[in-house]
């Protein structure tokens, strides 16, 4: 009997999720005993045509990391969706949009204008935008089209399972593969991580005060952090209360606050709004001036609370009149 076929693919991502697969180290041999990897652009020499040639549903599963930012990524996501029995959003970008999703703070026009025309590092003669079609040495060249917004994988094609994390830990990856291959896989749509907030598994849980109160917010480089005490109690923005656990509190273990990469639990629709709600309600000040002074300690609320989940948020992206007018001019 042939082994189930697995594909790995990457879209708008940094490569960290690929690294996470490599981080399985010797354990990857166990994975290879159970499955055949038939497509993995970062590590193996297979081509898109190898996938196109397969019958639909021939792949047991595709683990796709990265957000969907361009027409090329969309095409690959759809191709792999067709060919796979299970499509797994692997990592924060595929699950919620991830760090690339922060680009949704700006319209496409704003991004292109800054990057190719206004960035101070550009030379005088370098200010031209790449064109979708061009000609060089008698060849017609084509570039993928940049979408207007960054999307999570499930905003483009249906997704069967989610493995969150930036990147997912080797333990989580192995457990996810084992669950998929088992005779009793979890229901479709499941997030393959615990459905409890990170605080629940945090080693500093016992020092979290029940009456949390912030005189102000401080960033980790501004103070000497106590390695034992709850980071919230030290006035640091820790996203643990609004973030799904399952990572083993790695960042907290390194004396750094949680930045929210596992996304929200199933009871929360919008991670950023919930984090804002939970942290800001506990400011100590009782007057507007004092409250605003404390809030100044979080200079970029959108980037702080939606670091990994902006495309999946309720508003999804910048909805200013300028951004809306741009859609009409498409």
């Amino acid at each position: 009997m042939s082994k189930p076929k697995i594909a790995f693919y990457w879209c708008a991502a940094c490569g960290g999720c690929e690294e996470a697969v490599v981080d399985l180290a010797e354990d990857i041999l166990g994975v290879l005993d159970a499955v055949d990897i038939v497509f993995w652009p970062v590590a193996m020499d297979f081509k898109k045509s190898d996938i196109t040639a397969l019958p639909d549903g021939a792949l047991f599963a595709t683990l796709l990391n990265g957000a969907i930012r361009s027409s090329e990524q969309e095409e690959m996501a759809q191709l792999l969706r067709r060919k796979s029995q299970h499509l797994i959003a692997y990592g924060a970008c595929a699950c919620h949009g991830g760090v690339p999703g922060l680009a949704n703070q700006f319209s496409r026009e704003q991004l292109l204008r800054f990057v190719y025309e206004e960035a101070p590092t550009l030379g005088e003669d370098g200010r031209s935008r790449p064109q979708l079609e061009s000609e060089a040495n008698g060849h017609e060249l084509e570039l993928p089209r940049l979408h207007q917004a960054v999307r999570a994988l499930d905003q483009v094609v249906p997704v069967d399972y989610y493995v969150p994390g930036c990147p997912p830990t080797p333990k989580l990856t192995q457990e996810a593969l084992a669950m998929l291959l088992s005779s009793n896989p979890p229901p479709r749509g499941s997030v393959l991580a615990p459905d409890t907030a990170l605080c629940d598994e945090c080693p500093r849980k016992s020092s979290k005060p029940s009456d949390l109160s912030f005189a102000g917010f401080r960033r980790p480089h501004e103070i000497l952090l106590d390695p034992e005490k709850c980071l919230l109690a030290q006035g640091v923005v820790c996203c643990g209360p609004g973030t799904r656990g399952g990572c083993g509190a790695l960042c907290v273990g390194g004396n750094m606050p949680c930045s929210g990469c596992f996304g929200p639990t199933s009871r929360v629709r919008d991670q950023g709004a919930k984090l804002l709600s939970s942290l800001c309600a506990n400011i100590a000040a009782k007057d507007e001036a004092g409250i605003n002074l404390a809030l100044d300690g979080i200079p970029d609320p959108l980037g702080t609370f939606y670091r990994y989940a902006l495309p999946h948020s309720i508003l999804q992206r910048n909805v200013s009149q300028a951004a809306r007018a741009e859609t009409l001019s498409l």
């Binding site: 950023g272 804002l276 506990n282 409250i291 605003n292 809030l295 979080i298 609320p301």
Partner: peptide
């Protein structure tokens, strides 16, 4: 408190 921050966001 939430509202002041939400306005900024």
């Amino acid at each position: 408190r939430r509202f002041q921050m939400l306005k900024r966001m």
